[in-house]
Amino acid sequence: MYATKDLSDAIDVTRAFLAGASFWTWIKLAVIVFFVGGVMSGTPPTPGGGGGEFGGEPTPGTGTDPGAAVGFGEMLPVLIGIAAIGLAIYLVFAFIGSLLEFALLESLRSGEVHVRRYTKRNLELGVRLFGFRLALILIALVVFGVPAYALYTTMEPNSAAFLGAIALLAIPVFLVYAVVNRFTTVFVAPTMLQEDLGVVAAWKRFRRTLAANWKEYLVYLLLVWIVQLGLAFALGIVFFIGFIILAIPLILIAFIPIIGILIVFLAIPFLLLLSSLVQVPVVVYLRYYALLVLGDTDAELDLVPDQRARVRGDVTTESGESDGWDSNGDHPDDGWDSDDDRPDDRPADEDGDDGTDSWSGPDHWDSSDEGDSGKDTDSPDSTDRWDDSDTDRDDDRSGW
């Protein structure tokens, strides 16, 4: 099956993508992974139970504090403020993550990492994906919350029966949400990019592929959850060892007045960046795995046909001629040797780029973002989907 074969092919594609990546390419990937690689999940709020009957006023007596209600009332605005700040931070992260999903897909397809260029090119798709994700979360909350509240009003909140009923309700809702959210991210978003569709239209397009190859995608789900569990365990060990190594010096430094606190504060973004760097190969591998499965089950939705052909030794073009790549994924005329070492005398291109993946321009992201020189020549379609005279996508696209 493709779902099993692509596990090993994804390793080869990931190795080829990251082997020649420069330091700044890894940094840009780490920034993308910071927003799209992490899992920001929350559980619906559970109603709390107190002493006495539901809806009754607390009766002062032994073991009760008559001022407790007043204290909670005073803290309520603070709690609401904290919740509002947390929600705002989540929405900002979710919005940026939705935009960078397409920057990651474009980078995996082209083999070049450009954050600003790819984000700007697919801004509308990112906004649509963000709206769909919010709608999906709200639907899951309603599907879980309404029956959960009904159970709360008809059963004893602290009873084992109530907890068991909540668990039986939460598990299927969470599984459906997790599957739909994953498929939207790793299969529907590539379909949006490949076919230039909205989220709902892309889901309709992908649904045909899913229905025709449901066994492949079922095996994919099982395998990817097993692989993620193993990778999460391995990363957990790495992070634990790193925490032990770095925590003791930071704790000692924190005791230094003012300077110690400042150093610890500045160390936080460094640790977040380091954590994202460690996760880069994992995220790239999992995304390539999904793209390979998608392309194997539907050639029209294949974002990485060149990468697939190189790792499998199929290096012929549609005309039957060789594309110049050997079976190891190396091109004999591109100035690279088999060890991916760049020649020192490699000439610069028209944009002044020396062939490396480092940033260019004053903003260190993509100074070549504009104009013809910023076109993506490694993508299947070398022309920019947005020209200067047409900044809007087709109006007949349905969905989000």
Results as ranks from 00 to 15, higher is better:
P281N: 06
V282W: 04
L123I: 10
G63E: 05
V13E: 06
I80H: 10
A10L: 05
V115I: 13
Y149P: 06
F183V: 09
P45C: 02
K204S: 10
Y285C: 04
P257M: 04
E300N: 14
D357S: 09
L79Q: 11
A88M: 09
D395N: 13
P157C: 00
D340G: 13
T297D: 01
Y217A: 02
G313M: 06
A68D: 00
W203Y: 07
H364Q: 15
N181W: 12
A16M: 15
D349M: 05
S319P: 00
Q194Y: 04
S319H: 06
G55L: 03
L138V: 11
A170C: 06
R385G: 12
V280T: 04
L105D: 01
F255I: 11
G86E: 09
V173F: 08
P44A: 11
N122D: 09
T185W: 15
D388P: 03
D302S: 05
P281H: 08
G355Y: 10
T153D: 08
A234H: 07
G48W: 12
F243R: 00
R182A: 06
F95R: 05
L100G: 01
V282T: 14
G355K: 03
I268W: 11
G361K: 06
Y285T: 08
P58C: 00
A16L: 14
F23L: 10
L125H: 14
I248L: 14
L272C: 10
R208K: 15
A68M: 03
R346I: 15
W400M: 00
S41F: 15
L274K: 01
A83V: 05
L262K: 02
P45D: 04
D330E: 10
G361Y: 11
P147A: 11
S327G: 14
A94L: 15
D341Q: 14
G355M: 03
L169W: 13
